[in-house]
């Protein structure tokens, strides 16, 4: 079957690709657009490693048909920093030792960003709910939750 064209913005840059009709957005971002920050962990919606923001809301890119991204605004961890200045979440993750192997980190950051964009002062429970679809097998949830709270307004250093 012929490949099909799809256009979207990725971290504010326009992207146009030809994708396999059945391919998912994760593969399109990684091997098509060359953004390797979203990760493959399960392909079934269990782990959250592939979480990206579509029009500001967290979605699982492995369960999103690439074609369905047409015209949408996509954000990934690769676009989180503004130039050389890191996002408050990134700084908080660094300072709070909130990553071990780092494989869940891009998905965690996107889930956390979606939360903070909507709710700049979340409670601990809201943070836990926001990352409840993101697994960390190095069992680093406590420092991750702490780092997200540290990144919230008024608490970042």
């Amino acid at each position: 079957m012929p490949k099909i064209p799809v256009r979207f913005t990725l971290n504010e840059a326009e992207v146009g690709l030809f994708v396999e009709p059945q391919s998912n957005l994760l593969e399109a971002l990684r091997r098509g657009a060359g953004d390797l920050s979203p990760k493959y962990g399960c392909g079934q919606g269990t782990c959250g490693a592939c979480t990206v923001l579509i029009d500001g809301e967290p979605h699982l890119s492995c369960l999103t048909l690439a074609e369905a991204a047409e015209g949408r605004r996509i954000e990934t961890t690769a676009g989180l920093a503004q130039g050389s200045s890191l996002h408050a979440l990134q700084t908080a993750f660094i300072e709070g030792f909130a990553a071990q192997c780092g494989y869940c980190t891009p998905g965690m950051l996107m889930a956390a960003k979606a939360l903070l964009d909507r709710n700049p002062r979340p409670s601990r429970e809201e943070v836990i709910d926001a990352i409840s679809g993101n697994l960390c097998r190095c069992t680093g949830y406590e420092p991750i939750v702490d780092a997200i709270l540290a990144a919230t307004e008024g608490r970042a250093a």
Partner: peptide, 11 residues
């Protein structure tokens, strides 16, 4: 500070 963590948080 982990030496590899900057890579982790920037993807």
């Amino acid at each position: 500070i982990r030496q590899d963590i900057r890579g982790h948080v920037t993807g």
